[in-house]
Amino acid sequence: MTIDVHGHLSPPESLRRYPMPRSLGDADAMIETKLAAGVDLTIIGSPVGGGAMVPLPGVDNYAQTEEELARFHDWLGDLVARHPDHLRAYVYVNPFGGDAHLAAVRARLADDGFAGLIANSSVAGRYLDHPDAADFFALAAETGAPVLLHAPAAPAAGTGLADLMAVEQLGRFADVTIGLACCVLGGWLERHPRLRLIGQGAGGALALLAEKLDRAWSPEHWQRDRGPRPGPATPPLPRPPSAYLHRLWVDTATPSAAAVELALRVFGPDKVLYGTDSPPLPGGSVTEGLRLVDGLGIPETDRQAVREGNARALFGARLPPPAPAPSRA
């Protein structure tokens, strides 16, 4: 069995209102394509709720009302209920959404079919090291719900990029990198031992930056010169930031085998999850992703962990049980 922890589907209302790939509206085709490739279960969600992933003038994804989000989650829950063996879903959450929003998120997490949370790596230009995200992280830790940190439609790291493809392939990649780093530097993993964060796309470039994180935590050039350190102080951590990287999960939704190999080494073979970002990426990305995982020079036990075991360990009873092995006559 293979579990895909990173897929998307959008409701008919969003497909009518906003430009987006039509594949996001065809759950049956997604399931059939993945089953044909050997992927049995997909955890789906939307990083914009019922909004638009393409930045559009006058469209503010963070201005969705609780009623609008409730309709979106009702649709998502109904979709999972129609395909209980092949789908689970993420609850969309705005980390800065306030008490009423977080209460609605908590209630939705109790519904059958919802396996975790999906949140943006930056929100309207703010990263999640901001103190206003404290209640969100406390909720995620208390419930034990895994959080897929996904780049937003308009990433803070994409500021100044005019071309949509540059935003999509570069700005969002950089946003996940910085967003995860801010979660570490902000002390959320230190404060919440039960916090479970998943970085999309192998965690961006974070696996390359362990030493840079430690320099951000302890800047030798400022200490040596004894000059005043500019900017707001980073919350103190008792250990170097690199010591927290093994607490993060990442998915394989990247075309780079080198990125996945580095993720296995830095985060650990028990922290890498098979993911495709399909839809919207076409069905071919599913087989390409499986070939990437199968081509890694790792033990077969680690390969099976990436394909299924790590997701089961992370999401636990929120996932349907594996199908029983066929009996031998």
Rank of each mutant, 00 (worst) to 15 (best):
G125V: 07
Y127N: 03
Y127F: 13
D129N: 13
D129G: 08
H130V: 11
D132E: 14
A133R: 00
A133Y: 00
A134I: 05
D135F: 03
F136G: 00
F137K: 00
A138F: 04
A138T: 11
L139N: 00
A141V: 07
A141E: 09
A141F: 07
E142L: 11
G144E: 03
A145D: 01
L148F: 11
L148I: 07
L149I: 15
L149D: 01
L149V: 13
H150S: 06
A151R: 00
A151Q: 05
A151P: 10
A151Y: 01
A151T: 09
P152N: 06
A153E: 04
A154S: 14
P155N: 07
P155V: 07
A157N: 04
G158V: 04
G158K: 01
T159A: 14
T159Y: 14
G160E: 11
L161D: 05
A162G: 15
A162T: 15
A162F: 12
D163W: 12
L164G: 10
L164R: 14
M165G: 12
M165V: 15
A166Y: 13
A166E: 14
L170K: 11
L170D: 11
L170H: 14
R172G: 04
V176E: 07
L180M: 13
C182F: 10
V184E: 02
L185P: 03
L185H: 06
G186W: 01
W188T: 04
H192E: 08
P193K: 08
P193V: 10
R194V: 09
L195M: 10
L195N: 00
L197M: 13
L197S: 02
L197P: 00
I198G: 00
G199P: 02
Q200D: 11
G201F: 03
G203L: 03
G204F: 02
G204V: 01
A205G: 12
L208T: 10
A210V: 05
A210W: 03
K212F: 12
L213R: 03
D214F: 03
R215G: 11
R215K: 15
W217I: 06
S218I: 10
P219T: 06
P219D: 08
E220G: 13
H221L: 14
H221A: 14
H221W: 14
W222L: 15
D225F: 12
R226K: 15
G227P: 03
P228I: 11
R229S: 13
P230M: 09
G231C: 09
T234L: 13
P235H: 07
L237N: 02
R239P: 02
P241N: 04
P241G: 03
